[in-house]
């Protein structure tokens, strides 16, 4: 059968375009190792809180957890924080726990002052890069993970998203089955 050169060229171009778009689509996602974190148990950690106590993620088992990686130098993070404050107050009775992880080189005192200034009403722990790596790497901030009541990662959001999207993710996490927290 004779091969039509035009057809071959078109096929080659189409395949190339598909591959190029595939690569581009991949690269627009954050580059982490943990591509399949959703649906997996959220990696537990033990980190120092601003009050000096040690907090574990597993301390909040039974609650829907909004795990927010942030830093004092991150302006978009500052936009979200008042929303988290409101949403924590609104959904606390239903079992929401917002937990901030400061990926900062500022001192705990500075972070504490910053949090106070922002009116934060939820615990903040001092982050470590290793913890970020456990979550597939935190290439930029804010990065937020939504964890179900039974401790699984439901969603992760990179960068600033709207309040309504945050609230929708919270409601999704709250709707997950699991024991009701006693804390």
């Amino acid at each position: 059968m004779k091969r039509d050169p035009i057809v071959l060229l078109v096929v080659a171009v189409v395949i190339s375009l598909m591959l190029v778009f595939g690569i581009q689509k991949t690269r627009h996602r954050p580059q982490h190792s943990g591509e399949k974190l959703e649906g997996q148990p959220a990696p537990d950690f033990s980190l120092s809180a601003l009050d000096g106590k040690t907090l574990k993620l597993s301390d909040f088992h039974g609650k829907a957890v909004l795990l927010n990686f942030w830093a004092t130098w991150c302006e978009p993070c500052k936009v979200e924080m008042p929303w988290f404050v409101d949403l924590q107050a609104k959904y606390r009775p239903q079992g929401l726990q917002v937990l901030g992880v400061a990926m900062d080189d500022a001192s705990p005192k500075e972070i504490s002052e910053f949090a106070k200034k922002m009116g934060v009403n939820y615990p903040i722990v001092i982050g470590k890069e290793a913890v970020g790596d456990e979550y597939g790497g935190i290439p930029y901030l804010p990065s937020t993970f939504y964890i179900s009541r039974d401790g699984k990662v439901l969603e992760r959001r990179f960068g600033l998203v709207s309040r309504s999207e945050i609230e929708a993710d919270i409601q999704k996490a709250l709707a997950t089955p699991g024991q009701v927290a006693q804390k």
Partner: peptide
């Protein structure tokens, strides 16, 4: 002609990969 088609594909892939590496 197959060679030309293959060459076009390889070139496009190479450019995409190089660009990708550069961005990252």
């Amino acid at each position: 002609m197959w060679r030309t088609a293959l060459l076009v594909s390889m070139l496009a892939l190479g450019l995409a990969a190089a660009d990708d590496l550069g961005l990252n």
